[in-house]
Amino acid sequence: MIAGIGTDLCDVRRIDAALRRHGLRFAQRILGPQEWAEFERRLATSSARAHRYLATRFAAKEALAKAIGLGMRHPMGWQACEVVSDPLGRPALQCHGALAAWLAQRQWQAHLSLTDEAHHALAFVVVEHQP
């Protein structure tokens, strides 16, 4: 049974502007440890690719916040979950701490789809109740 659906469209140019204004602190606020390591790898080769990566992670977390109905308030937070990929590149949400416990208590599992194109990053999250 579907418990919630969330989507977010992020303009990569807004992410570029935030990074210019706040520097890497902005990315560090959004990304978890695994995401940060990948962001740094991408940044070393292509800032545009790194900025699109950050935009997709930003959109994914916003979409999850909408799908679970909390917005960005406890236990949902920027670093309460990370976008990880399976060996074939399929994205998934890996939740931590209080958010993971909150989702488990409700028997909810989140499914994620991501895409990006030039100036836009899109995330779509379906939260499923799995008794």
Rank of each mutant, 00 (worst) to 15 (best):
M1L: 14
M1I: 12
I2W: 09
I2M: 12
A3W: 07
A3L: 08
I5R: 03
I5E: 01
G6T: 07
G6K: 06
G6N: 07
T7P: 02
D8L: 05
D8I: 02
D8P: 02
L9M: 10
C10E: 09
D11V: 07
D11K: 10
D11S: 09
V12I: 13
R13I: 02
R13A: 14
I15G: 01
I15K: 04
D16Y: 05
D16A: 12
A17D: 11
A17K: 11
A18Q: 12
A18V: 08
L19S: 05
L19R: 12
R20E: 13
R20F: 06
R21D: 07
R21H: 11
G23M: 06
G23L: 05
G23A: 05
L24A: 13
L24I: 13
R25P: 08
R25A: 15
F26P: 06
F26M: 10
A27K: 05
Q28E: 15
R29F: 08
R29D: 04
I30P: 01
L31N: 02
L31K: 04
G32D: 10
P33H: 10
Q34E: 15
Q34V: 13
E38M: 10
E38H: 14
E40R: 15
R41L: 10
R41W: 04
R42A: 07
L43G: 09
A44R: 14
A44W: 03
A44N: 12
T45E: 13
T45M: 11
T45W: 09
S46P: 06
S46T: 07
S46G: 09
S46R: 06
R49G: 15
R49E: 14
A50Q: 06
A50L: 08
H51T: 15
H51I: 11
F58H: 05
K61T: 05
E62L: 03
A63L: 04
A63C: 03
L64T: 03
L64A: 02
A65W: 00
K66G: 02
A67P: 01
I68M: 03
G69N: 09
L70N: 11
G71T: 08
R73I: 04
R73S: 09
P75W: 09
M76V: 12
G77N: 04
G77K: 02
W78G: 01
Q79I: 09
A80F: 08
C81P: 00
E82V: 07
V84E: 11
S85T: 14
S85M: 11
P87L: 10
P87E: 12
P87V: 08
R90P: 00
R90G: 04
P91Q: 05
A92L: 13
A92I: 06
L93R: 03
Q94M: 14
G97D: 01
A98F: 04
A101M: 10
A101S: 13
A101T: 14
L103D: 00
L103Q: 03
R106K: 10
R106L: 04
R106P: 01
Q107D: 13
Q107K: 15
W108N: 02
Q109P: 07
Q109A: 15
A110D: 05
A110G: 08
H111C: 11
L112Q: 05
S113I: 10
L114Q: 05
T115L: 05
T115I: 07
D116W: 02
A118C: 09
A118S: 12
H119S: 13
H120P: 00
L122M: 12
F124G: 00
V126Y: 02
V127P: 02
E128P: 03
E128G: 07
H129F: 14
H129M: 13
H129W: 14
